[in-house]
Design a protein around this nucleic acid. Structure first.
Length: 475
DNA sequence: GCATGATCATGC
DNA sequence: GCATGATCATGC
């Protein structure tokens, strides 16, 4: 007879029993039901979410429900399965975000955080981490660790406060009728990630006629990884330190640290911070100065790493213009031609990343710079269509092997390749430019370039135009 | 002055 | 050795 697990203790004990095993171990291979076999075939072995259903059925002997309550309502336990991956140094880290319940746009606008359906359902989450490996059957993933995520006692008050603010930010956006503009980069630890089988699926929202993508609450991958490292694996990284232990949100912490320096020159800041032996010749002088302004003890800041916030130090010209555009990681020509925009790397990156711009301004005829301001920023989804145009054009050119327009020599006899890639004037928002160590630093092309005849080209990346970014620095 | 290609410098 | 933040150099 299949055992039923009812109490919290029974369920956690059962989870412990299966650690180190695969689902195929847990059930005994020949009893894989015809129904499950059929499902695995039909859905391919990779349908996301199916693994969780299998665990519920095979390990806990219960049929998954879609009711808006915890998976084990009597015990008050929500069960989640999520993959771990091995990085280059063979360390485990979270492979994906941890997805919670779907956001019901219609109902959530009536909710308050303390009595929210989110907290109710996810009050106590039992997480099973399995080891993801490419090209192996779902039934053969090893279930490695379990973690009991207790929202009330298991997360620091500081993090809970940030999660609450994130939740409120998302709900307020829906209240304003902007569910279609939600973006993971809006928030810090708790994000609103898209949730649909197909990216073209949309749903209605209460205060606007514009259809929105269905979304779910989730812990960002980085935040989940923080939990994995510190609470599951106990791998405390001494290089990563928080800049505040106070019960404040990340916004408040940064405002509290940086406001006092606005309008001061770098030299004045050095004096104010009583930094000795701190010279303009230091490596990464500006970046180091900003670290000290933030009160960071090491160069890696816990609050930013947990929330996928990226610090960028920029310097406006004395006239106020921003000369340099913002670069992103280089892309692989081979990969981009296989991608679709909606699920592409660049689109995900743009949506998920949050920036903290630290804005200095150069002074005419002086070496000094002034700390003008700082700005949290993430890409506004209103403009995402324009980036899509740049991306599609780029993909088209690579696919056609139509990249190099002309090879020129400069006065030093150095070759310079002019390309057809969308430049800064393409649409004012994004463009493509080289991003390499030098001209010889190339990467493979899927199709030989017509002009050069080569199957490789200088590494390139997408850039956000300097003027576009500059617009967001006002006020 | 600006667009665009190219590359430096650091850190992992 | 490579990724990537940051910036330089050239030529129209």
């Amino acid at each position: 007879m299949n055992r039923i697990y009812k109490t919290k203790e029974e369920i956690i004990k059962r989870a412990e029993e299966i650690l180190g095993f695969t689902l195929r171990n847990v059930i005994n291979n020949d009893t894989v039901s015809g129904e499950i076999e059929d499902n695995l075939k039909k859905q391919g072995s990779n349908r996301k979410g199916y693994y969780g259903e299998l665990v519920e059925e095979m390990v806990f002997n219960q049929k998954p429900n879609t009711r808006n309550e915890a998976d084990f309502p009597l015990a008050g336990i929500e069960l989640k399965t999520t993959p771990l991956k091995k990085d280059k140094t063979k360390k485990f880290s979270s492979k994906e975000r941890l997805v919670f319940s779907k956001i019901n746009y219609g109902n959530i606008v009536e909710e308050e955080w303390a009595s929210s359906s989110f907290l109710k359902k996810n009050n106590f989450v039992l997480i099973l981490f399995y080891l993801y490996e490419k090209e192996i059957d779902l039934l053969d993933y090893i279930i490695k660790y379990k973690h009991e995520l207790d929202f009330i006692n298991g997360i620091s008050a500081q993090d809970v406060l940030q999660i609450q603010k994130d939740w409120e930010f998302i709900v307020n956006k829906i209240k304003r009728g902007e569910a279609h503009l939600l973006s993971e980069g809006d928030t810090y630890y708790l994000g609103a990630c898209t949730k649909a089988k197909d990216s073209s699926v949309t749903t209605s929202q209460p205060n606007s006629e514009i259809p929105a993508k269905p979304r779910a609450f989730s812990f960002k991958q980085k935040y989940l990884n923080y939990i994995v490292q510190t609470k599951v694996l106990n791998n405390k990284d001494e290089e990563v330190k928080p800049i505040s232990s106070q019960n404040k949100t990340i916004d408040e912490i940064v405002v509290g640290k940086l406001n006092r320096y606005i309008g001061k020159t770098d030299k004045e800041i050095v004096v104010k911070l009583k930094l000795k032996d701190f010279s303009i010749n230091l490596k990464q002088y500006r970046r180091m100065l900003v670290n000290r302004m933030l009160g960071a003890k090491t160069s890696r800041i816990e609050e930013f790493e947990k929330s996928n916030v990226e610090l960028r130090v920029v310097a406006l010209e004395p006239t106020g213009i921003l000369r340099e555009s913002i670069s992103f990681p280089k892309f692989e020509y081979k990969d981009i031609v296989k991608e679709d925009w909606e699920t592409s790397e660049f689109r995900s990156l743009l949506e998920e990343r949050r920036f903290l711009f630290i804005i200095f301004q150069k002074i005419k005829d002086s070496e000094d710079i002034i700390f003008k301001n700082f700005k949290f920023w993430n890409f506004p989804m209103n403009d995402i269509g324009k980036v899509k145009d740049v991306w599609e054009e780029t993909k088209k050119l690579i696919k056609a092997g139509n990249i190099v327009k002309e090879i020129k020599k400069d006065k030093n006899g150095k070759e310079k390749k002019l390309t057809y890639f969308p430049g800064k004037k393409f649409n004012g928002i994004a463009h493509v430019r080289p991003h390499a160590r030098n001209g010889a630093d190339t990467t493979e092309l899927p199709v030989r370039d017509r002009k050069t005849g080569l199957n490789k080209h200088t590494k390139s990346c997408f850039w956000l135009n300097s003027e576009y970014i500059r617009n967001f620095f006002e006020n």
